[in-house]
């Protein structure tokens, strides 16, 4: 509930606040600011009256969002493919997007980077970039839709996540694949198993036929064209197959967790 209270701050656009804050704040304060600070909790609704029992409003919104997770899981059709486009439709330049400037994007050393695999899998070996590059890859040209509303068409090439999950002997009856990223703030995001097993969900290594640039998540991002953009984490360093809901960077702040398209 404490988390949800932070969502409803009249007069403060939190997304903008965060962008400003990360520019000026030292590392340690950042995450704290995002998850716990600046809590006003008052909700101004219609008449401008202070809904002091906004606990109930927040609790209601939280419950409805969970209900919406269920509804979306129910209507998710594993055989429905996100529409694909010709290469000529690709948005140029494809926008960089993050809660930080591109100059502050994580810089990962591809030579020492390893993808850590944890949880309900048979083979927990870590994977180097060269090893991952050896796996069969497919290309997709799909629309990336941001939670903010804008969209852009891009080309991603990589290994279908379901092929990789099979390769490592993942228990695909588990509920989630949980990703952690190299971001200093510890970006992470849970992906429900049916979406993880969708044919178009991939571990992307290339954008527009080039090795994924830093701006788009080098060395590896997850691309989920059946979900909003924030569910496609960049700079991934580990994945965990799990039955536990471990939350996520934006999910914890109130974005709907399923966020299917």
């Amino acid at each position: 509930m404490g988390r949800m209270r932070n969502l409803l701050i009249p007069g403060v656009d939190k997304a903008l606040l965060i962008r400003d804050a990360v520019k000026t704040m030292p590392d340690l304060t950042r995450r704290r600011f995002i998850s716990g600070g600046a809590s006003l909790g008052a909700l101004t609704l219609l008449t401008g009256c202070d809904v002091t029992d906004s606990f109930s409003a927040e609790e209601m919104l939280k419950q409805v969002s969970k209900f919406n997770d269920g509804v979306q899981a129910l209507i998710f059709n594993p055989n429905a493919m996100a529409p694909t486009f010709p290469e000529s439709a690709i948005t140029k330049p494809f926008p960089f997007n993050g809660y930080y400037d591109v100059d502050d994007a994580p810089e990962v050393d591809g030579k020492s980077w390893k993808l850590e695999v944890r949880g309900l899998v048979d083979n927990k070996k870590s994977w180097t970039l060269d090893e991952l590059y050896q796996l069969p890859q497919v290309k997709q040209v799909t629309r990336h839709i941001c939670v903010e509303g804008w969209s852009a068409i891009g080309s991603w090439t990589g290994v279908p996540l379901r092929d990789f999950l099979k390769l490592i002997g993942a228990d695909t009856r588990a509920k989630y694949v949980w990703f952690q990223c190299a971001d200093r703030d510890g970006y992470n995001s849970p992906l429900d198993m049916p979406s993880a097993l969708h044919a178009q969900t991939q571990m992307s290594f290339k954008f527009a036929d080039e090795i994924l640039p830093r701006a788009y998540g080098f060395p590896m991002r997850i691309r989920v064209p059946t979900k909003l953009g924030f569910k496609s984490p960049k700079y991934v360093i580990s994945m965990e197959v799990t039955n536990d809901y471990k939350g996520g960077f934006w999910e914890d702040q109130g974005y709907n967790s399923f966020s299917g398209s």
Binding site: I9, V12, D13, K14, A15, L61, S65, V147, W250, Y255
Partner: peptide
């Protein structure tokens, strides 16, 4: 208050 709250 912000995008996330408005979406809820």
């Amino acid at each position: 208050g912000w995008l996330g709250g408005a979406l809820l």
